[in-house]
Nucleic acid binder design. Sequence first.
DNA 1: TAGAGTACGGAGAACCTCTCCGCTTATCAA
DNA 2: TTGATAAGCGGAGAGGTTCTCCGTACTCTA
Lengths: 202, 202
Amino acid sequence: MKSSPGDSRRPQRADARDNRDRLLQAARAVFDEQGPHASLNKIAQKAGVGPGTLYRHFPNLQALLVAIIGGDVEVLCAQGRELLEHPSPDEALRMWLGAVARHATAMRGLVAAEMIAQPTKETSTALAACHQAIHTTGTALLGRAQQHGNAPARLDIADLLILTNAIAWASEQTPTDTGLLDRLLALINTAVPNPHPHEPRK
Amino acid sequence: MKSSPGDSRRPQRADARDNRDRLLQAARAVFDEQGPHASLNKIAQKAGVGPGTLYRHFPNLQALLVAIIGGDVEVLCAQGRELLEHPSPDEALRMWLGAVARHATAMRGLVAAEMIAQPTKETSTALAACHQAIHTTGTALLGRAQQHGNAPARLDIADLLILTNAIAWASEQTPTDTGLLDRLLALINTAVPNPHPHEPRK
DNA sequence: TAGAGTACGGAGAACCTCTCCGCTTATCAA
DNA sequence: TTGATAAGCGGAGAGGTTCTCCGTACTCTA
């Protein structure tokens, strides 16, 4: 991969670059604190810039979120590439989907859902890049699990990713239930049969 | 069930009752047209009342949505009770979860998600009633599938319902993909094993 | 160092949710 | 039929949001 999906349109002027960086930093902090429904005004305020500046750099909430998670997508994909060496292709796929879900939850669901769902008419190039990167990694992992593991051939990586994100979304809706994410993931894990079942099925 | 979850707090005065009914009718139309993010002001306008009147009848968006779907919940539960007579307990559970998902999608995900997730501090009695009704029906169907079908004992109805709603939410995010809902449901259906497997398990 | 052009940021438009409270009106006892 | 009374109405407006416009200020280059 040549360029990170998150660094598109980095401005030329030093002050503009500074402001962009400060906005991203502030956005990370505010989203982390208040979730994806945080006010963009608050972010601008925290970054010490006017709302106009925020909107010039990031025309909408989606653009801002995509810029934030651009780097994280790289990490997920790198993790996925490492997992291609894992002795168990099925386990590797499961672990990666878990990582995607955990990341989506940490990023408050919103973005990842947008990212993995079908690109809409307004999908930016950065969004498309994230989407593509995740998909490519997933396809490799699923393909290996189908060829050398026990994953059924009918499984579709797009559907699996959508389901994973749906689970992340659901578990974010009820943050009090900390075990929910893993329980729901376990529910769909039957779709990727475990090669070493601890309890034999009847 | 003595009273519908939807008819709570029906006002005494005729004009108030009229306004309430017109608000519900307008809300149904507007939500159907614009989704759950429709403006409540628009609904009040469409119903020909002031915003104050809307908020007196329904203190927040959730209350309005719950009132709208109150009757639908009854239908789902009735359907569930009928399915208790279905020859295959597993198939019955599957069919009912499908109905729940389809209904949640028709209702734009939001409500059902709120309804089935853990009740929050502000959960109204009507919301709790809906929540309870769905849960009771689901518990009956799952219990039968566990006792006389092939549903694993570790399955939890709350988790199954949350996952069902997550799927409904996801399939609503990408309305262009009309087959998505069924494909995702099929994915988790492996968690409720088919009683007539074509390929015998080892 | 000066001119060109880029970027800033605040005022404000246009929405939103939700509340307050003076006025209107339905209901019911007399 | 007719008040008295309580219930209900609805619009003004407070306080929030997203997003735009444009005069000002700064940065970069020559």
